[in-house]
């Protein structure tokens, strides 16, 4: 199964590296990244494969959210099915 991780916040050096390392720590494999900076505002959407997570998915969601807080970023991790159900017929 795949999860969508959205990351937003003030732009700075090394955000992609930090988020990627955190994903690696939990065994989430990044399959796609889209990233941009708008008026100094960092916006990234990652699609990750979470089949080989070393923790429960719910714990991964919490861990990513608190990692975001520590780094002044908003990090949301959501199962891809919510997007599939809304945007595909």
């Amino acid at each position: 199964m795949k999860a969508v991780i959205s990351v937003t916040g003030k732009d700075g050096v090394g955000i992609v590296a930090k988020v990627s390392s955190k994903c690696a720590e939990f065994g989430a494999n990044i399959v796609d990244i889209s990233q941009t900076v708008l008026d100094g505002y960092f916006v990234m959407i990652m699609i990750t494969d979470v089949d080989s997570l070393n923790v429960q998915f719910g714990d991964f969601v919490d861990a990513m959210a608190s990692f975001g807080k520590e780094n002044a970023l908003q990090v949301n991790t959501m199962h891809e099915d919510i997007f599939n159900s809304m945007h595909k017929i």
């Binding site: 969508v4 959205s6 889209s34 959407i45 699609i47 949301n76 891809e80 997007f83 809304m86 945007h87």
Partner: peptide, 10 residues
């Protein structure tokens, strides 16, 4: 999934 779709849901 397009980036726009994901952003819209969020």
């Amino acid at each position: 999934l397009t980036t726009n779709d994901i952003r819209e849901t969020i």
